[in-house]
């Protein structure tokens, strides 16, 4: 596995709801093993960009390439195959409320593998243990806390050992310690599994802690205005909008980078 192998390439992407353009002319590359941050102010289209990645919304123009395969031009079967290799953690977990945690994690395994129920149970227990929820197999999502729901969502996203993991605001609604633990978990998963990770966030601590590549979307000009390692952006960016964002609105650069 070479260091800079392109995994996801975004080419000339324009996103729009009907006539209303959210972002235009997006061009960037996510390399294999990256922890890629999609950042920007509220309403700039971060989550919409994520929806283009995970196959929920088609682009108005442009392409999203997975290892050279254009997702939105591929046939249905190819799309399903690609989607099976992705895991998504939604903002509030999006666990199916009528199923226990174990059933939530097991669903994809039941659908897409030929494992017997015993093996599925073991793998489900492993995934829940990985996110620190050992023993909570038979709980319903409504019976656990928000942070636990998020971790259970991560266990579900990892069910099929995905090559790419998408996180929508992983630390939103978590206390700082839980947020840090989740960040550590993300790093650990990247290190151990070599997965590519795409994170939508505006949590500065997370951005600098885990991100090694990023794109900055600007709601005013409706396009990306910076791309690269967030720490380098903080140190070197000439764009005042990027610097203001990365320094929490202060104009100086002192004392932010970790």
């Amino acid at each position: 596995m070479t260091e800079t192998q392109a995994h996801i390439v975004v080419e000339d992407l324009t996103m729009a709801y009907g006539d209303f353009v959210i972002q235009r002319d997006l061009d960037f590359t996510i390399n294999r093993g990256d922890i890629f941050i999609i950042m920007g102010g509220s309403g700039c289209g971060k989550s919409t960009l994520l929806r283009h990645f995970i196959g929920l919304k088609s682009p108005a123009r442009g392409r999203v390439l997975y290892e050279g395969v254009s997702f939105w031009e591929a046939d249905h079967e190819t799309q399903e195959n690609l989607m099976r290799r992705m895991g998504v953690l939604y903002q509030s977990g999006a666990l199916w409320s009528s199923m226990t945690l174990a059933e939530n994690v097991a669903l994809a395994l039941q659908e897409y593998t030929t494992l017997n129920p015993g093996d599925i149970r073991e793998i489900v227990s492993l995934k829940l243990a990985l996110v620190g929820l050992a023993g909570f197999e038979d709980f319903y999502p409504s019976e656990i806390s928000g942070g636990m729901r998020k971790r259970a969502g991560l266990a579900r996203a990892m069910a099929l050992d995905p090559e790419i993991l998408f996180f929508d605001e992983p630390s939103a609604g978590l206390d700082p310690i839980s947020a840090k633990l989740l960040d550590d978990l993300i790093l650990e998963i990247r290190e151990s599994l070599g997965a590519t990770i795409v994170v939508v966030t505006h949590e500065l601590a997370s951005i600098f802690d885990i991100g090694n590549n990023s794109v900055f979307l600007d709601p005013e000009t409706k396009t990306m205005i910076a791309v690269g390692d967030p720490k380098r952006l903080l140190a070197e960016s000439e764009d005042p909008r990027v610097v203001r964002f990365l320094t929490r609105g202060k104009d100086g650069r002192e004392g932010q980078a970790a």
Binding site: A129, G132, A134, G135, D138, F139, E188, S192, G194
Partner: peptide, 22 residues
């Protein structure tokens, strides 16, 4: 392997909460 050790460590880091299992 290194990755296996890390994952195993993660899986065993949080002990099962007593009484959580039903």
């Amino acid at each position: 392997p290194d990755g296996v050790r890390r994952m195993l460590h993660l899986a065993t880091a949080v002990p099962e909460r007593q009484g959580a299992r039903r």
